[in-house]
């Protein structure tokens, strides 16, 4: 991964000490940024500048059983469509997650991990509950993107239905960040 391939504003903004920042997502706390709230808008520039490091995920629990084979299911709870595309991009030849034994599956019943994107739309609450219940054990739940993590500027997070084991910040998180999170969640190095 070359630095210029990472979309800068999906990485963590850090204080430059220049001027004042206004954050539409209330992600800035003093000189730090609560990355799960950040919507990658760049409105805090020049007071903050992105650090360029895509390894922003927060891993709350890991599952080593998935080290050789990892089936993931994408669940759209109410997204703008971009998080979905960044997850699907993991299958393209640039990221090629299949070389790492990671593949998409067609139902939560066959999934090791539920990858949830988007805010919790009213109509998707019941389907999300069902999807979580359908997951076999062991399992992991990922909240991918500001919407799923915190609700961003759009709506409610998914935390009312399920607590995420892995949090992948960004709006949308870039595929490097998502792949890094998938690897770490099964105890692999980034």
């Amino acid at each position: 991964m070359a630095a210029e391939e990472v979309p800068l504003w999906t990485t963590t903004p850090v204080s430059t000490g220049i001027g004042e920042a206004q954050c539409p997502a209330n992600a800035i706390k003093g000189t730090a940024v609560e990355i799960g709230r950040c919507i990658s808008c760049g409105y805090c520039s020049p007071a903050f500048q992105p650090d360029g490091d895509p390894r922003t995920s927060i891993i709350r629990s890991t599952e080593k059983a998935f080290r050789k084979s990892f089936h993931i299911y994408l669940f759209d709870a109410g997204s703008c469509g971009s998080c979905n595309l960044e997850i699907k991009a993991l299958g393209n030849p640039y990221y090629d997650m299949s070389r790492l034994g990671i593949s998409f599956c067609a139902t939560p019943k066959h999934a090791d991990a539920l990858i949830v994107v988007g805010v919790l739309a009213d109509g998707m609450s019941a389907p999300l509950k069902k999807a979580v219940e359908a997951l076999p054990s062991p399992r992991l739940v990922f909240a991918v993107g500001a919407c799923a993590i915190s609700g961003g500027i759009i709506g409610k997070s998914i935390s009312g239905i399920v607590e995420a084991d892995v949090v992948v910040p960004g709006c949308p998180p870039n595929p490097f960040t998502i792949l890094d999170a998938l690897q770490k969640s099964r105890g692999d190095r980034s």
């Binding site: 210029e4 391939e5 990472v6 979309p7 800068l8 504003w9 999906t10 808008c41 760049g42 949308p172």
Partner: peptide, 18 residues
Amino acid sequence: ERLLRLVSKRFGHRYFFG
């Protein structure tokens, strides 16, 4: 993907946000 990277490099975001 190449196109999105081109956008990312020039605009700081793959989907033109912000």
